[in-house]
Design a protein around this nucleic acid. Structure first.
Length: 279
DNA sequence: TCTAACCTGATC
DNA sequence: GATCAGGTTAGA
C-alpha cells in the first residue's frame, strides 16, 4: 500500500527512534523475504551503528556504519513496528532486527511481496531497483517533470506510476494529483501543454506535502511505526469514492481501469481532450 | 505496451 | 466461489 507519504512518515519515526542505535542481529524467518547482497551475510550487520535513516521513492533505507545498507520495501501490505522483543509475534512476521538497547524492529507482510535487503552501499545504489529510480518529486521543477513525461507514448497515469520517471507516486496519489490538476488519467502524457504541466507539478507537490503532514493514507493495512493509522484518506477527493459526488462539481466519481489499475476520476473535471491531429 | 504473476485476506 | 487490493516485473 504505502506510497511516498506513508514511507516518509515511517522513515521520520525510525530516524527519531533509531539514529545511533547499534544492530545486534538481523534474522529472516521466512525464505526469500530477507535478501542478502553478494558476499554479505546477515551477521555482517551485527555490531554496526545506524548512521542514517533515509527514504528514496518508496524505499526505506537504514545506512549502517561500514558501508552496509539495510533497505525495506513495503510493497502492498508490508508493515514495520518497533517493539519489545517479548511482545507476542504477529502472524506473517518475516524479518527481525534486534538492537543492542533491547528493542526489536519487525517486518510483517501477509502477502510477502515486500522485501528487506542487506547489501553494500555501492551494490544497493548501482544495481537493482534503487538504481533505476527517477528523481524525487521534490527535486523536480515543472519543466523537469514535463520533460520526463514526454519520454514515451504511454498514457499519463502509466507514466506517473513509472518509478523511473519520478520516484514515489502510487495509485492513490496519482489519482488525487490528476483530479486536482484537472487532467484525464488516460490521455497521452506527451500531449500536455505547458500550463497543464504547471498545474500537475503544483498539485503533486502540494498533495504529497499535505499527505506527509497527515501521516499518510490508511485504506486497510497501512500503519505508522507506532501502529497508528494515517489521516489523509479522509481528504481523498476521488480515490475510493466511486459513485460519490466530486467535491469540486458534484458529479459522481467514476471508477475505471487505466494502466492495469483501478482508477478514479471525475468525468466533468477531468475531460479527455479530443486527440489533436498530428501534422 | 499490456497482462499475468507473485501472495494472502477481505468482501461481495 | 469469484473478485479485488496501496507495487513491481517478467514475459508475451
Amino acid at each position: 500500500m504505502p506510497e511516498l507519504p506513508e514511507v516518509e512518515h515511517v522513515a521520520r519515526g525510525l530516524r527519531a527512534a533509531l539514529s545511533g542505535s547499534v544492530v545486534r542481529s538481523v534474522t529472516g524467518r521466512f525464505p526469500g523475504v530477507l535478501l542478502l547482497g553478494r558476499g554479505v551475510r546477515a551477521s555482517a550487520a551485527s555490531g554496526r551503528r545506524v548512521e542514517a535513516v533515509r527514504r528514496r521513492g518508496k524505499l526505506l533505507l537504514l545506512d549502517l556504519e561500514g558501508d552496509l545498507t539495510l533497505s525495506v520495501h513495503l510493497r502492498m501490505t508490508g508493515e514495520l513496528s518497533l517493539v519489545d522483543p517479548r511482545a507476542p509475534l504477529r502472524p506473517h512476521t518475516h524479518v527481525l532486527v534486534d538492537f543492542e538497547d533491547g528493542r526489536q524492529l519487525r517486518f510483517c507482510d501477509p502477502r510477502r511481496f515486500g522485501r528487506v535487503e542487506l547489501r553494500t552501499r555501492s551494490e544497493h545504489e548501482n544495481e537493482g531497483f534503487a538504481a533505476r529510480l527517477g528523481p524525487e518529486p521534490f527535486d523536480l521543477d515543472a519543466e523537469g517533470l514535463g520533460a520526463r513525461l514526454r519520454g514515451s507514448r504511454a498514457g499519463l497515469k502509466a507514466r506517473l506510476l513509472d518509478q523511473g520517471v519520478v520516484a514515489g507516486l502510487g495509485n492513490i496519489y496519482v489519482d488525487e494529483i490528476l483530479h486536482a490538476s484537472g487532467l484525464h488519467p488516460g490521455r497521452s502524457a506527451r500531449s500536455l501543454r505547458p500550463g497543464e504541466v504547471l498545474r500537475l507539478h503544483a498539485a503533486m507537490i502540494r498533495i504529497l506535502e499535505d499527505a506527509i503532514r497527515a501521516g499518510g493514507s490508511t485504506i486497510s493495512d497501512y500503519r505508522g511505526l507506532d501502529g497508528r493509522a494515517g489521516d489523509y484518506q479522509r481528504r481523498h477527493r476521488v480515490f475510493g469514492r466511486e459513485g460519490l459526488p466530486c467535491p469540486a462539481c458534484g458529479t459522481a466519481i467514476v471508477k475505471t481501469r487505466v494502466a492495469g489499475r483501478g482508477t478514479h476520476h471525475c468525468p466533468r473535471c477531468q475531460v479527455r481532450p479530443r486527440a489533436r491531429r498530428h501534422r
